[in-house]
Every structure is written in C-alpha cells, then in structure tokens.
C-alpha cells in the first residue's frame, strides 16, 4: 500500500507536465480545429533555448521567461508560415504539414545543439523530501512544477472565463462566422490561441527537462501521452486536458512502478485505443454533427 501511495505521489509532477502539453494541443484545437503534432517539437526547441540561457546566465526564472516568449513567437511563426496557408485547402495536408514542421524542428535542433542528450539542472533540489522520518517520492522541484502548472491553469481559466479576450477567443472557436459578424477579429484570436499554446508547451518543456535529459527526439513520447490525455479529455475541453493529463501521469507512474517504465507507451496506446472505441468524442467532449 505504501508502494501504491508512493507511485501515485510520484506521478503528479509528470502528470502536470503532460497536462500542460495536452492543454497546448487543446488550445490549438480550439482555435484552428486541428491537432498540432509539431507542438512537442516546438517545446523541445524552446527548451533548448532555455537550456542555453540557463547555462550562460545560471538563472532558471530568466530561462523560463525566455522559453515562454520564444514559445509564443514560434507558435505564431508556425501559424503564419504553415497553418494559415494550408488550413482550409486540405485537411490531410494540414496534418502532414505539422509533421513536416516536427521533422524540421528536430533536425534543426540537432544541427544547432547536437544529438547528444543534455541534462537540464533544476533550480531547486530534485531529491525526495524527508518528512516525518521517511523519504517521500516528492521533491522540492516536483512541488515547483505543480505550483507553476497550477498558476498557469488558473491564469488560463481566468483568461477564458473572466476577460473579454477570452470571451472573443471562445466565440471564434465556437463559431467563427457568427463571431466575425459580431465584430470579433477572428484571425487575431487564432493567432492569440497559437501564441498561448506555444507558450504553454514551452513551459511544459522547460519543466519536464530536468526529470530526464533533453535531446531532439526526447519529447516524442510526451506527444503520445499528451495526445492521449487531450483526446480522452475531448480535445476541446481545457478541464479535460488537465484532468486526464494528470490522470495519464498517475497511470504511467503506477505502470512504471509496478512493472517497467518501458511499458508506459503500450499502456498509453491501449488507453487511447479504448477511449477512441468507446467514447470517440472524449469524456468532456461535445458530440459533433456534420452537415451534408
């Protein structure tokens, strides 16, 4: 039983990062109705930028801020160069184009920073805390990750529910035509959506890097987990993304604890397949209809 609790506690910070990545996917889906498979590529790239900043200045907060800015800029650049021109013409092409961006970003990162895995030094201790005479599987850094994630999720929730920008974004996601007629600058909202998604993914990347190492391909698996979480959550639900992101993190932690961390992708695949079979629109999703 103590094992179970340990594994569960150890999964929260990983789950928080998966939740951030899933959030980024959902934000893009809400603004442009497509899955950005380059999302983790963008996050990987900005994490490398953050790594460079941290290595030269030693300042983690500065690195996080730089990653955030770089992430939003990269999101906007990808939107303008790739997504906006292709989006309406060819849905299959749009999916393929995001994979093209992913391949190019990974190769670009390999060119600039090399293919060898690099360590990202956490700003605070990443060893298990000792409270009440036993070592818990939660470190100071885990708590920091959870705190940053919580701040971000609360901030996004407030943005979408309490501000006129959030209302406009929701309106243009829900029905672009009507929103445009009501005076919402839909295009600007799409750009904002991509920028926020890019920033969210970038923060997720910086947060998860210290848990292992960073290399051009190291976030591939994160894409699978985040996609699983986002789809189970319904792809257009922010709450769903966060809930199932953390849920996925917990499941992975349990699987890794009781068997082997190599089994995690298989479990994610099974979860995803089951969900798509039983509830294709996700738990929090809305069932769509299509006009002929």
């Amino acid at each position: 039983m103590t094992n179970f609790i340990d594994y569960l506690l150890g999964g929260f910070s990983n789950g928080a990062v998966i939740a951030l990545m899933a959030l980024a996917l959902v934000l893009v889906w809400r603004s442009t109705r497509m899955v950005n498979f380059a999302q983790v590529g963008q996050a990987m790239f900005t994490t490398y930028i953050a790594l460079t900043v941290q290595q030269s200045t030693g300042n983690w907060v500065l690195a996080l801020v730089v990653a955030l800015l770089a992430g939003s800029i990269l999101g906007v650049v990808v939107f303008f160069l790739v997504i906006r021109p292709v989006k309406n013409s060819d849905t299959t092409g749009a999916i393929i184009a995001t994979f093209g961006v992913l391949i190019a970003l990974q190769a670009g990162a390999g060119m600039i920073w090399g293919g060898d895995p690099e360590g990202f030094v956490p700003p605070v201790d990443n060893a298990g805390l000792e409270i009440g005479g036993r070592i818990w599987p939660v470190s100071l850094y885990d708590l920091l990750v959870l705190a940053v994630t919580a701040v971000l999720v609360i901030g996004l929730t407030l943005l979408f529910t309490k501000t006129s920008l959030g209302l406009s974004m929701r309106a243009s996601a829900f029905n672009p035509e009507v929103a445009r007629l009501s005076g919402v600058r839909v295009n600007r909202m799409l750009i904002t959506g991509w920028a926020i998604a890019g920033a969210t993914g970038a923060i997720g990347g910086v947060l998860i890097a210290p848990f292992s190492t960073i290399s051009p391909n190291s976030f591939d698996i994160l894409l699978v987990f985040a996609f699983t979480a986002a789809v189970i959550g319904g792809l257009d639900s922010l709450i769903g993304a966060v809930t199932f992101g953390i849920g996925t993190g917990l499941v992975i932690s349990l699987v890794s604890g009781y068997s082997d961390s190599g089994n995690a992708p298989i479990v994610a695949l099974v979860l995803l397949a089951l969900n798509l079979l039983l509830k294709p629109d996700g738990v929090f999703g809305h069932h769509g209809s299509r006009s002929v």
Binding site: A97, G100, V101, A104, Q106, A107
Partner: peptide
C-alpha cells in the same frame, strides 16, 4: 531538415 521543409 530538408525533408521537413520540403514536406511543408
């Protein structure tokens, strides 16, 4: 890098 850019 070429493949990615070419695909896009």
């Amino acid at each position: 890098l070429l493949y990615g850019l070419l695909v896009v």
